[in-house]
């Protein structure tokens, strides 16, 4: 049975967000908030960065380069590059949402709301939700975690919570761990191959071209995964 009904889907989205991702974003954005303060940004600027950039790798690049006194062009370029993954992520996400025909402004708004959390969680949950209610699930989930992220940014900025170092490590660790667990359940041979080769590629890419390592891992790992899957498909057919 697929889930359907606005209230059912919205409740599930809210519960799914509150079960982990909202807390994870709260804590990771706390880290961003305190770094942003150190780099000289105001509380409003930091909160607005989380809301409008809405991609941590880019936000971190912005804060890091600003604190080392780089020029504006270099900062914006590095931030943009660190968030370039949104292009393929939007492309793979929109058809899975099965929203049908939406106007361009609405699609852009959906794209602005997308983050790595929503991407991973929604792609995992969509198969269990009736297509016409998937968009509702996505918007509820994404705006809940965005809200948590903004509160986290402000909390970190004002240094409201001081935790012992070992606990901070546990909290930092939770974010990649969550994604690793979510992705371990991804079905589909092509996707699985791509993820494996993405991990292999990034080791090399990180040493050779650290600023674009994620893009290289995606391009190379994804292409190998795609090709390998096609090759195996063809061999089975013949």
């Amino acid at each position: 049975m697929l889930l359907s009904g606005n209230s059912v889907v919205m409740r599930k989205a809210l519960l799914d967000a509150l079960s982990l991702p909202a807390f994870i974003l709260f804590f990771t954005m706390m880290g961003f908030g305190s770094l942003a303060r150190g780099a000289g940004f105001s509380a409003e600027m930091s909160a607005l960065s989380s809301m409008l950039i809405w991609g941590l790798p880019g936000q971190l690049a912005m804060v890091e380069l600003t604190s080392t006194g780089q020029g504006i062009i270099a900062i914006v370029f590095a931030c943009s590059l660190a968030n370039a993954r949104f292009l393929p992520m939007v492309v793979s996400f929109v058809p899975a949402m099965a929203r049908g025909r939406a106007s361009l402004p609405r699609m852009l708004l959906d794209a602005q709301l997308l983050s790595i959390n929503s991407w991973a969680v929604c792609l995992r949950e969509f198969p269990h939700i009736e297509p016409e209610f998937r968009h509702r699930y996505y918007v509820t989930f994404a705006s809940s975690i965005l809200f948590a992220a903004i509160i986290g940014t402000l909390t970190g900025y004002h240094g409201a919570v001081l935790l012992p170092g070992s606990m901070v490590l546990g909290l930092i660790f939770v974010s990649p761990l969550f994604f690793a667990l979510v992705l371990s359940a991804v079905p589909g041979r092509a996707e699985r191959f791509s993820m494996i080769f993405g991990c292999v590629t990034i080791v090399l890419a990180h040493y050779l071209f650290p600023s674009v390592d994620v893009l290289i891992a995606g391009g190379v790992g994804g292409s190998i995964g795609f090709a390998l899957n096609k090759f195996l498909q063809r061999r089975n057919v013949d």
């Binding site: 993954r85 990034i202 893009l215 790992g221």
Partner: peptide
Amino acid sequence: NCVSYAMVAGL
């Protein structure tokens, strides 16, 4: 789709 999965996994 493969590229985005490889990217996220790599990250």
